[in-house]
């Protein structure tokens, strides 16, 4: 008999005031923390191709979420997670714009990992989201997409929801739809 297993603490919504705790400077609460964690992913020393990833999260009525908080977790330019290579943490956090819902990360293009195509892992929380949502963003021009173990589990039209649009060679747009015909694929990781 294994030792008594505890249950994971149940999730609760981040609510509309998540910024107070996670991005207080963005919320206008100045002077408590030096800066908002995850606001700046790049420094001059970080190695890799600079890219911008931007997007908006939409609800089932097509309205942008103006109170969402987006976190990303990604490999460095060599495809390695959590190495702190050249000072790159791989983690970013961005609140949606409170008027438009747009969010933006300035980061490096991740390298392909040992299994599968290069991607950026997303985690989305907001008022009305009772359990934080995991998903992944892939790059449209990546020859490894067809052999990616996750993408190969997903049928064609839905698979497209995980692939960013190339706005320019260094700018990628990844809109996330919580419901509807284009509902983004969310993951049980």
């Amino acid at each position: 008999m294994a030792a008594k297993r505890l249950k994971e603490s149940p999730s609760q919504t981040a609510g509309p005031y998540v910024h107070i705790g996670c991005t207080p400077n963005f919320a206008g609460i100045k002077g408590v923390y030096d800066g908002d964690p995850g606001a700046k992913m790049l420094t001059d020393t970080v190695e890799g191709e600079r890219i911008t990833v931007t997007g908006t999260v939409f609800d089932g009525q097509g309205a942008p979420l103006t109170d969402a908080l987006i976190e990303i977790w990604q490999a460095d330019a060599l495809g390695r997670f959590g190495t702190m290579n050249s000072g790159f943490t791989g983690w970013g956090r961005c609140p949606a714009d409170q008027s438009t819902g747009a969010w933006r990360f300035d980061t490096v293009r991740p390298g392909a990992s040992s299994v599968g195509a290069a991607h950026i892992i997303f985690w989305i929380v907001a008022r009305g989201i009772n359990v934080g949502l995991h998903t992944r963003m892939y790059f449209p021009d990546d020859p490894l997409l067809d052999s990616d173990p996750l993408l190969s589990l997903i049928e064609g039209a839905r698979r497209e929801t995980l692939i960013a649009k190339e706005v320019s060679p260094t700018v990628f747009q990844f809109d996330i739809h919580l419901q509807g015909a284009g509902e983004t694929v969310f993951l049980d990781v």
Binding site: T89, N130, H134, R158, L178, Q179, E183, F186, D188, V189
Partner: peptide, 23 residues
């Protein structure tokens, strides 16, 4: 939660080191 809850089932991601690591 009415318009902010995904309606399709979550996809079980294959085991990978990626989500298994963290900052």
């Amino acid at each position: 939660s009415i318009y902010r809850s995904p309606q399709k089932p979550l996809i079980k991601a294959p085991p990978s080191q990626n989500e298994d690591s963290g900052p």
